[in-house]
């Protein structure tokens, strides 16, 4: 095996992992605080991607410039969804949240199918086809931007969770709700904020994906199955686990694509998923 090809596959794998990172971090954050798998994660990503798509097509706003806008819009959407729907109708039962988010994903996908049809859409921006030399690899500029921006945003989120009062309250609520109420933390509001932040991650992910990826009503599945694997691999609720897991899964996908052929790239991911469930079902970074 030529070292150059291998090196290029490694670099491409890491870049791919970077684009999974925000999706997985959002999922693990919601799980860590609310103790539920957000089944609406994929369809919310799809919605955000259409958002970024239409901002570019209709308002001529560059996807990268649209990041703050989409992050704010998706945060608001997540917050309102939690307050108005998920929190209200779950009556404090986790299994209800599960069903609500699952139902939500079905509704969103079919509404998208109704309005946007089943075709995939792609966008072209001036830098879509620009390639950058990165060691042995020649990589598309949007993928490099996506990787760097993902890591920067994850670091910013980690700082927020670690260093601000809201971040501390989010962590406190994750483990000790009664104690949190007694220091005056509005637990329901923190749930909504956490859900909002998890969904806001998708807003950023969508803007970073759209210059190099297609959008369709079912595009969310593609990412969310991978994101589930990453979250299980890293340890459910572990922030750093989601980040490292993303890179591992990106590498796995790229390397198994190299050795088994492009079409079979995802086999490696499934294999890792099975191995994790067999040997360390709590994930790498679980305590």
């Amino acid at each position: 095996m030529d070292a150059t090809i291998l090196g290029a596959a490694v670099i491409n794998g890491l870049l791919l992992g970077g684009s999974y990172a925000l999706v997985a971090v959002g999922l693990t954050l919601i799980y860590g605080v609310l103790h539920i798998i957000n089944f609406a994660h994929g369809s919310m990503l799809m919605l955000a991607m259409y958002g970024a798509y239409f901002l570019l097509m209709k308002a001529k706003i560059d996807p990268y410039a649209a990041i703050p806008l989409m992050v704010a819009a998706m945060f608001a959407a997540g917050y309102v969804l939690y307050r108005g729907l998920i929190g209200r109708f779950s009556h404090g039962k986790d299994e209800n949240i599960l069903l609500i988010t699952l139902g939500l994903s079905i509704v969103l996908e079919n509404v998208a199918l109704f309005f946007f049809k089943g075709d995939s859409q792609t966008v072209t921006v001036s830098y879509s086809d620009r390639m950058v030399a990165l060691g042995p690899a020649l990589v598309p500029l949007p993928k490099l931007v996506s990787f760097v921006a993902s890591l920067v945003l994850c670091a910013a989120l980690a700082w927020f969770i670690a260093r601000t009062d809201t971040g501390r309250a989010i962590r406190a609520v994750a483990k000790e709700r009664h104690g949190a109420r007694l220091v005056g933390i509005d637990v329901e509001k923190i749930f909504a904020v956490s859900y909002g932040i998890g969904i806001a991650c998708l807003g950023a992910a969508a803007c970073l994906l759209i210059p190099s990826f297609y959008v369709s009503p079912s595009v969310g599945h593609l990412f969310v199955i991978v994101a589930f694997t990453i979250v299980v691999l890293g340890g459910m609720g572990s922030f750093i686990g989601a980040l490292v897991g993303s890179l591992i899964i990106g590498l796995t996908e790229s390397l198994s694509g190299l050795f088994l052929g492009e079409a079979l790239g995802q086999i490696g991911i499934s294999l890792i998923f099975i191995l994790i469930l067999l040997f360390r079902p709590t994930g790498i970074f679980s305590k």
């Binding site: 501390r168 962590r171 406190a172 994750a174 483990k175 000790e176 009664h178 104690g179 949190a180 007694l182």
Partner: peptide, 8 residues
Amino acid sequence: GRRVFPNL
């Protein structure tokens, strides 16, 4: 039962 935040 104290109810401190164990993970903080």
